[in-house]
Design a protein around this nucleic acid. Sequence first.
DNA 1: CGCATTCGCTTAACATGTTAAGTACTTCTC
DNA 2: GAGAAGTACTTAACATGTTAAGCGAATGCG
Lengths: 172, 172
Amino acid sequence: MAKRPADPANAGATAARQVPMRDFSRSLPMSLLRAREAVMRQFRPSLREHGLTEQQWRILRALAAIEAAEVTELARTAFLLGPSLSRILRDLEARNLIERKTAKADLRRSMVSISEKGVKLMASVAPSSEAIYSEITRRYGARKLAELQDMLAELERSLAELGASDEAIAEE
Amino acid sequence: MAKRPADPANAGATAARQVPMRDFSRSLPMSLLRAREAVMRQFRPSLREHGLTEQQWRILRALAAIEAAEVTELARTAFLLGPSLSRILRDLEARNLIERKTAKADLRRSMVSISEKGVKLMASVAPSSEAIYSEITRRYGARKLAELQDMLAELERSLAELGASDEAIAEE
DNA sequence: CGCATTCGCTTAACATGTTAAGTACTTCTC
DNA sequence: GAGAAGTACTTAACATGTTAAGCGAATGCG
């Protein structure tokens, strides 16, 4: 047990029982985390069977949809940070699932595209992946799912302009 | 089941444009990931200023609310896997933010509690954290936020019974 | 042209996510 | 009451998240 300071105004452990900060399990980040985990738990086994991690799968999907892209663009699409993407691309390239070639106009940029082998791998994973998604949709309800996505999108929008660093350093 | 089996010869990057899987950015895992990131982006700077990571903060909050807990219980509450928690507790203990003592009844178990110093640290972080949460609530709308949480909770429930294990029987 | 600055990407370093294996202790069973 | 089986936690190993620094290639400007 923590011996606690007799200062209730501090919202320390003492106050925690009586005036808990928002119930921990109801905090928005936790709700989102748990929901996402519940969803991903469905997909991971299938991906794993095909030797793919969640992030690798995201990258392949993104590439299949846009044909070819620069690394930065791909990072934005697959929602990965540069360093993570850099590592994963190295591995995917070693496995011949993607191809890279530097742009002629700008030697800093490299264009990434999915390979023949990558396409085949995707084709082998997609059915199971779609089936899982369908089952999720069926259980939760298609309409409700769409509504949820809308609400999540609006949440993003609501927070978009709130500075990414501490306090708005308005950058225009 | 495959709604539309992809023809490898035809499902290359080119075909992907005509028959994309669900628009990537609208997939549920991506929506949840982006929404959560949008939220956490607000909190991270403040936590970082106090030398805490998101997970460490989760643990402290959980401990403050329940006084003392076994490691396994704490893992469930803070939604962390055992190995992650084990490492973090080691670090938090080294920083004297938590205390550990093995239970007398069962020497395998150890009871974890927040320390005096941990309580003070929480007290110094909480105001800013609450302020951020309030701002998020204000922007998004309290009612809408509650509704979102409910929908997320139901999503969890919907998927709860879907096996976390098998699902991959297609192997023979 | 010369050169500081910016840009695109990678590497580095550390913390966590994830799965598997290990360790120490408990309980069950005969 | 000794071994088998289970439990609580930790370690290990690898992949990713996250921030900072590095590097080569453009770009801006004198």
